[in-house]
């Protein structure tokens, strides 16, 4: 069974179509990336999966369950977590509060102890966040903020982690670190859906990828096959 199946998805922002009858499906435990130019509809896709943007038509299935009508704040309980574009941290709250909010939906079922344990696991992944745990999130550096955004999403212990341009605005060294974390998470059998401007780096670590052009699916294939595709090379990999 596919982990996620998107059928005939169309999304518009008042008349302007951002996604046009999109069909996408991918398997569990894989790194899947979505590449495409600015405005191709990548963020719209993730936001629609999360039901932050309503779909005009089409259906979305997660682990065989239709999730199109499930409210955003319920989706996280099904195992879908989003690291939104631009991080969208709770910038006036401390690092610790940001993390605890990541587990907001689970406080009742997990209890404080388990939430703290999860925070510890995030701190193991990003030790700098532990040092800064009482600092206000808005005062962190760009790299630390991205770590916190990922850490916050991990607090839900998701089955599928969706990341919208996690490398945006980061120095190359930091980008490498973030990618390594993504690979590490995937090695622990977490599924990853990644949007990335740096198409080459994304394809290199992806098991599978989809290429969006003006809201349409232009191409798809394994990371390796797309890396060698002449058209993709020309359009996204700088020739």
């Amino acid at each position: 069974m596919m982990l996620m199946e998107i059928k005939d998805l169309t999304v518009s922002y008042g008349g302007i179509k951002a996604l046009r009858s999109l069909n996408i499906a991918f398997e569990e435990k894989s790194i899947v990336s979505i590449i495409g130019a600015n405005g191709a509809g990548k963020s719209t896709l993730l936001n629609t999966i999360m039901n932050l943007v309503p779909a005009e038509s089409g259906e979305i299935f997660f682990q065989g369950k239709r999730i199109s009508d499930i409210k955003s704040h319920e989706l996280i309980k099904l195992g879908i977590s989003l690291v939104p574009e631009g991080r969208m941290l709770f910038s006036h709250l401390t690092v610790r509060d940001n993390l605890h909010l990541g587990a907001y939906a689970f406080f009742r079922t997990l209890g404080k102890k388990e939430v703290r344990k999860r925070a510890e696991r995030v701190y193991e992944l990003f030790p700098i966040l532990k040092e800064r745990r009482d600092q206000i999130a808005g005062t962190l550096s760009g790299g630390q903020q991205q770590m916190l955004a990922i850490g916050r999403a991990l607090m839900a212990d998701p089955r599928l982690l969706m990341l919208d341009e996690p490398s945006m605005g980061l120095a190359p060294m930091l980008v490498k670190d973030i990618f390594n974390v993504i690979k590490h998470l995937n090695s622990q059998s977490m599924s990853i859906l990644l949007i990335e401007q740096n198409a080459r780096a994304a394809l290199k670590m992806s098991h599978y990828a989809f290429v969006l052009e003006s809201g349409r699916l232009a191409s798809q294939g394994t990371g390796a096959s797309l890396l060698n595709d002449e058209k993709i090379k020309k359009a996204y990999l700088g020739g």
């Binding site: 932050l52 704040h73 989003l82 939104p84 969208m88 709770f90 910038s91 709250l93 909010l101 839900a156």
Partner: peptide
């Protein structure tokens, strides 16, 4: 409390708050 944290999170980003499971 957890309620207060949710309030403040909504102030900073409704989208993230919603995605984290807060019924905004």
């Amino acid at each position: 409390s957890r309620f207060g944290r949710a309030l403040r999170s909504m102030h900073d980003s409704e989208i993230a708050s919603n995605a984290m499971g807060v019924d905004v």
